[in-house]
């Protein structure tokens, strides 16, 4: 018996999901962050964020298609993390790293928080 493992399958799937997002195909939720609107796929959000997993597995909330985040959340931080969810690439600038970390903490994305903290330590 044999099997063929397509080593780049995960990144090919993620690229296609991001293409669907950018063309607004089958997006099923709008995340509102301080009046900025971000369209996305619930399944991708809940696969990447503990907060969205909790929201969309809650019978009372799973059918919501507009979610307003806490007013303290930064739109720039959320944009960086949403792009990360769909690309695996986390862009870090001096001007936004704290907003990204705070937003990641809020979204319950602990691995991103840990990595940002290690990045900060090494860059100090």
């Amino acid at each position: 018996d044999s099997c063929i493992q397509f080593t780049r399958h995960a990144s090919d799937v993620l690229l296609n999901l991001n293409r669907l997002r950018s063309r607004d195909i089958l997006t099923d939720v709008i995340i509102v962050v301080n009046r900025e609107h971000f369209r996305a796929h619930k399944t991708v959000l809940m696969a990447c964020s503990g907060l969205f997993y909790t929201i969309f597995t809650d019978q009372m909330k799973c059918n919501m298609n507009i979610i307003n985040l806490d007013p303290d959340v930064s739109p720039e931080g959320f944009r960086v993390l949403l792009d990360f969810m769909y690309t695996s690439r986390l862009s870090l600038r001096d001007s936004s790293i704290m907003a990204v970390m705070t937003t990641a903490l809020y979204l319950q994305m602990e691995h991103v928080v840990d990595t940002c903290q290690r990045f900060l330590k090494t860059s100090e």
Binding site: C3, Q5, F6, T7, H9, R19, L20, S22
Partner: peptide, 21 residues
Amino acid sequence: YEGVTTIKEMGRSIHEIPRQD
């Protein structure tokens, strides 16, 4: 996949969705 020979394929695995139609 214990005991199964695994061949690694480095090429693209699925179609690529275009940026726009």
